[in-house]
Design a binder for these strands. Structure first.
Lengths: 247, 247
DNA sequence: CGTGTTGTCAAACACCGTTCGAGAGACTCG
DNA sequence: CGAGTCTCTCGAACGGTGTTTGACAACACG
């Protein structure tokens, strides 16, 4: 190539780039921030569920490459933690009223479950995780303000947070599976359940009298009912620690 | 485990296999059986943990190819279910004695947790799963025999199994993570915990009096202590359903 | 003998989380 | 005005994953 030959017509300085070669639309994409990434991840989670939540998919949702995410977030696990904390902030705590502590605790339990169920598969993230930010402080203070006046010992209140979170998370997790673990055969869950019931009823009467009789009861009740039972049992247990008589 | 301890009520010999678990075929003389695969999977799980448990790895353990496994097992999830059920059969139930129901229930809880912790990461499998074979029948019957004489309503007993399993599983699951979720920063878990405590103590005194004071309490107590608390709370709650006075 | 049936498995498929290194763009300093 | 540095993006690649496919071997039965 004769590089030294003057070729002014070959000068491309200032010429517009042909549209088919523009690298990317300059500013159509929102800036990539931690915030935006968490938003996108939550959006993907809500629509595609946990199995659809891949780094590549989150990148796509942002109109960005998967690798870019790693500049803002250590790894997928940290991203999940952020999504979890963000969702937990949706919880609203009423002003604590010790005279109705059982009711308020029950309501909170219902609300937490609702939040975990509102965002698909968030319950799967929640397990073994706890909020670490200001949220946990607000919760703790709320619990103490509600339960200390009833006479429940500090240690019990302190441990209760864990237990409470564990139950709500585990229950919602089970729900999020939606019996998908149950179809170990090709059958739909309910049909499979019917099989188990039949199996139970077919057991020898002399050794399994109760089980035979309770086969229906064991699988009866909707999710709400069973959830409420667990919450109720915990509250009843708590009650035995209270020194102040219930209002 | 004392495998030689006589447990006639636990004997599942001669009980019919539930129809959904019948093996594909007796298989004349093959090195690869369902049984052998489950064994191998459990061996891999014990030594390499959940992350190391891949179909290829199980195949290798058997001196076979990964694809071969799919002849005997529908997919990985079914394999996990089988491993879970196998481990659950390690539980030993004492002869139910209603006069000591609280104690026996507590002991069972401790034992279940021990089993889940004995086999590395089995707790991770257990969540959202329940045994579906004869084991669940034996458990159910045991529960009823123990609790019905105390006057606890059938429905409560029926629901209790779920709740019990949920708590044990969720707790052991959390343990199996071993705080690995906590090192969202590079720090080791305990150091990170100290940070949270410091954070709590630094909160404004007027809005977070209890939290400031209870910062230590919240993270105090070893796992055993916290586990026992949850079990105790459930048993206390159960007690309120009993009509027969405690012995 | 042929013809199924049962069981094995290498190769391929379509993903995954994560790392690397080249680069673009914006800022600061001499 | 460079030159340098720092922030940020991302294509390509690495080493895995669960699962499917199709070819193939070993045996059973008529």
């Amino acid at each position: 190539m004769a590089a030294d030959t003057p070729q002014p017509w070959r000068d491309i300085e200032g010429l517009p780039e042909p549209p088919w070669r523009v690298a990317r639309k300059p500013s159509s994409r929102a800036p990539l921030t931690r915030q935006a990434i968490v938003d996108a991840a939550l959006r993907v989670l809500d629509s595609d569920g946990m199995d659809g939540l891949s780094m590549r998919r989150v990148g796509e949702e942002l109109g960005a490459g998967a690798a870019s995410i790693y500049w803002h977030v250590r790894n997928k696990d940290e991203l999940l933690q952020l999504v979890f904390e963000r969702v937990m902030e949706e919880a609203e705590l009423p002003p604590p009223d010790p005279s109705r502590w059982q009711e308020q605790l029950g309501t909170l339990a219902v609300q937490m479950r609702a939040i975990l169920n509102r965002h698909r598969d968030v319950a799967r993230i929640s397990l073994g995780r706890a909020p670490t930010g200001p949220t946990v402080a607000v919760f703790t203070e709320w619990m103490f303000t509600l339960l200390k006046p009833v006479g429940i010992p500090d240690k019990v209140i302190a441990y209760l947070g864990d237990l409470f979170g564990l139950y709500v998370g585990a229950f919602a997790f089970e729900e999020s599976l939606g019996g998908e673990v149950l179809d170990i055969q090709g059958q739909p869950p309910e049909q499979f359940l019917e099989m188990i019931k039949d199996y139970m009823r077919s057991l020898p009467e002399d050794r399994f009298p109760y089980t035979r009789q309770a086969a229906d009861l064991i699988f009866a009740g909707d999710r709400d009912d069973r959830y409420a039972f667990g919450v109720d049992l915990m509250i009843r247990g708590l009650q035995t620690f209270a020194t102040e008589p219930p209002a």
